[in-house]
Amino acid sequence: MKVAIVQFPGTNCDRDTYYILKDVLQADAELIWHEDLGMDTFDSAVIPGGFSYGDNLRAGVIAAHSPALRQLRKAGQDGKPILGICNGFQILIESGLLPGALLRNSSLRFVCRWVNVRVEAGNSLFTTFSRNGTILKMPIAHNEGRYYAEGDLLASLEMNGQIIFKYVDEGGQPSKPSNPNGSILNIAGVSNYEGNVVGLMPHPERASESLLSPFRTTDGLQIFRSMLRSVEVLLKR
């Protein structure tokens, strides 16, 4: 079982994600430069956060044209779990692997803050460790994280259970004050129709060690553990 952590020029959460997968969870993870990615040798992939190509033009758009995305698209079609975190989410959106758009935060400022994120649907490969309604404490850090989808698309996302994470308040409600960037319906993460490709703006790798959490939580591990278990299940098939 092998997880690829894909590095683009400007990716900067690659080593952090590697540390959590490899050192904390003892998974077989490998850092791989985007030009070298061949998904035949990997069972899943994480596109970590950062500023691929400096966020120039639009966050994620230049990386979305990389040959690595052809590899990831094929892997996605094969049902392999693929996770995009923050800039990775932006890349998956720009390359069309995930629906919708990510716009500039409504505050027009970069925002770094710990938020509450509620697990919505149960059919993604990245939430099998979490019950629906579970609240995960994770930090966000982004400039372009305002999720947007138009009427019909939004309705189909809701209907298909593709909305995976929402920003909520302490009481678990997707309220306006708990929405850090103006995302429509407080959406923090979505999946493809099949549920094996997921992107989210919060950083689970930064919320995976109690030492680094203001709340002594390790909620981010739920997402990585779900991913690893899903890979195991897929491999057994």
């Binding site: 400096g54 033009l57 230049i62």
Partner: peptide, 15 residues
């Protein structure tokens, strides 16, 4: 204009 340079090199010319 590093942003313009990057769009030229990394997106336009590369593709």
């Amino acid at each position: 204009d590093p942003e313009g340079e990057s769009i030229l090199q990394d997106l336009a010319i590369r593709n």
